[in-house]
Design a protein around this nucleic acid. Structure first.
Length: 544
RNA sequence: GGCGCUAUCGUCUAGGGGUUAGGACGUCAGAUUCUCAAUCUGAAAACUCGGGUUCGAUUCCCGGUAGCGCUACCA
């Protein structure tokens, strides 16, 4: 299949929702698999509901998911414009062509009239379909009404007999008799095209070879095929995708909670996890693997392997998949993500208040590096500077070496520690709060469970004292110290371990205690143990 | 109502005329342990119903039922 061209055509009447995202993904996979072109088109024919901000948000979500388009807004292409609102002239031409050939005719029925007739039919339990009132108006009559200024819509003249069929790449052969298709509207009385006109004209102009979209369009397809034929055009291949449902098996909607792609990003979901999860909603890769990297998806994606039945969006499985991706995320990618998360939550990463030896704000980086003409970084030579400047630079360097570098290291170790049990990026700032700030509360549940022993305050002080003097401060050494103390006092090590965990992290649940200690550093550990001891002696003095 | 589509564990699904109906998430139990994850082991859990075709149907056909979609001058 050479020269495959597919498109994803969202309408900017809402955010990109997960169903749309899956449709976009399948289009993208199909295009990439076949070395074809992936087009993004904005279907903003509904002028009342379409909003430019929403278009921006959709584009943003697409980029976040990693679904780059080859033609469309912002990247252009040879078959644009890619916004329906900018293609009005083209639709007028198509309508004119259809009207001229007799495939379309003006309908002067007003919305109210149609409404009334429909209601009447329903009241009598008759199936309603546009009754063709204007289907056979004479040319004279049409001219008369037009010159009288009567507004009209344009309808497609659907044949009364015969059937329209097509071979869907997912659903197989679909056949409907034309008698069941009504004379649908192509152009509204205000001249704006309807969806049917827009898609067909655009898909034609954009040379779309494969229309891949939600199964909610399955019933619309025969109408569109009729239009292609009336236009004398080649009918593209169609592939319809089963719908995504909520837990109640109803079509997924806002009622079910988060449906927007952006909402999942805000909840700390990784794009690769969402993509992988969405891909599996209706498609099974060969071998039934669950975790499938994008390259592999592209390689093995086949429309014929797409399921025909609707799928429930299972948040639990998404959460699992997100955790899976999060745990295996390379640190270069994880660290910036966590930093961003912390920033969003108002943490100041370099300034967690421990060493107090960080450079003052205004002096942080007085030309420590300069940009060379190639754009790379180049260190300033100290010896060529005037003495005052030289001293200042030297001082800043010293501080950078002493404190920020150290803090940075602690930060990285903490992130990596937390990574092993994170389920979402939010976990780093929520349950992991104590790793990035001194301001954290003792979880009431954890206190109840692990701070029961009356003598704990003394134990924690004793532990702090010993840790302060410990030879080194790595996991092995701190463990030795703690277990030694436990043995001397005839305590179970678990008692001290669990109590210390609450003291150091505020949580009853956290990574292994000795790794936590190493990541936090001696100073913080000692301070927090003492602080917890003080709190235990006098809880009313305040939490913290 | 009319038209169309769909139907395997709670969920996502594999499979296909003869299978102990497979996997994954979730659930439960155990191992591990310093809490919780992770990990490992194990368990419970499904072919919508009725007819046909057939030596044999979960699989193929027909019908019922249920669900979903379309039925707009929405997309």
């Amino acid at each position: 299949m050479a020269d495959i061209r597919v498109r994803f055509a969202p309408s900017p009447t809402g955010y990109l929702h997960v169903g749309g995202a899956r449709t976009a993904l399948y289009n993208w996979l199909y295009a990439r698999h076949h070395g074809g072109v992936f087009i993004l088109r904005i279907e903003d024919t509904d002028v009342d509901r379409s909003k430019p901000e929403l278009e921006t948000a959709i584009l943003e979500s697409m980029r976040w998911l990693g679904l780059a388009w080859d033609e469309g807004p912002e990247v252009g292409g040879a078959h644009g414009p890619y916004r329906q609102s900018e293609r009005q002239e083209r639709y007028r031409q198509v309508v004119a062509q259809l009207e001229k050939s007799g495939a379309a005719y003006p309908c002067f029925c007003t919305a109210e009239e149609l409404q009334a007739r429909r209601a009447h039919a329903e009241a009598e339990h008759r199936a309603w379909k546009y009754d063709g009132a204007c289907r056979h108006l004479s040319a004279d009559e049409i001219a008369r009404r037009r010159s009288a200024g009567q507004s009209y819509a344009l309808r497609f003249r659907v044949p009364h007999s015969g059937t329209t069929a097509f071979d869907d790449q997912v659903f197989g052969r679909i056949e409907v008799s034309n008698a069941d298709i009504e004379d649908f509207v192509l152009a509204r009385s205000d001249g704006h095209p309807t969806y049917h006109l827009g898609v067909v004209a655009d898909d034609l102009d954009m040379r779309v070879t494969d229309v891949i979209r939600g199964a909610d369009h399955l019933s619309n397809t025969p109408k569109q095929i009729l239009m292609y034929r009336a236009l004398g055009a080649t009918v593209p291949r169609f592939a319809h995708l089963p719908l995504i449902l909520g837990p109640d098996k109803q079509r997924l909607s806002k009622r079910h909670g988060a449906t927007a792609v952006g909402a999942y990003r805000d909840q700390g979901v990784l794009p690769e996890a969402l993509v992988n999860f969405l891909a599996l909603l209706g498609w099974t890769p060969p071998g039934g693997k669950e975790i499938v990297p994008p390259e592999e998806m592209v390689q093995s994606f086949e429309l014929s392997a797409v399921s025909k039945s609707n799928a429930v969006f299972d948040l639990e499985k998404l959460a699992w998949m997100n955790a899976e991706y999060l745990r295996h995320l390379p640190r270069e990618r994880l660290l910036p993500l966590v930093e961003e998360e912390l920033r969003k939550e108002g943490f100041r990463i370099q300034d967690s208040g421990f060493s107090g030896r960080r450079p003052e704000a205004g002096r942080q980086d007085p030309g420590f590096r300069i940009q060379d003409s190639e754009g790379g970084n180049q260190k300033l030579e100290i010896r060529n500077q005037k003495p005052e400047v030289r001293d200042e630079i030297a001082e800043v360097r010293r501080q950078h070496a002493a404190s920020p570098a150290h803090e940075r290291e602690k930060f990285e170790r903490s992130v990596l520690l937390l990574q092993t049990r994170a389920r979402s990026l939010k976990d780093f700032v929520q349950s992991g709060r104590a790793f990035f700030s001194d301001e954290f509360d003792y979880d009431p549940e954890a206190r109840k469970k692990f701070w029961k022993d009356a003598a704990l305050a003394d134990y924690l002080d004793a532990l702090a004292a010993r840790l302060e003097k410990a030879e080194t401060f790595d996991a092995a050494e701190t463990e030795k110290v703690l277990r030694g103390l436990a043995e001397e006092r005839n305590l179970k090590a678990g008692l001290l371990i669990n109590a210390s965990r609450v003291a150091l992290t505020g949580q009853g649940v956290a990574p292994g205690l000795f790794e936590v200690m190493a990541a936090l550093g001696r100073e913080r550990v000692v301070a927090r143990l003492h602080r917890a001891a003080a709190f235990l002696r006098n809880p009313s003095a305040g939490n913290n």
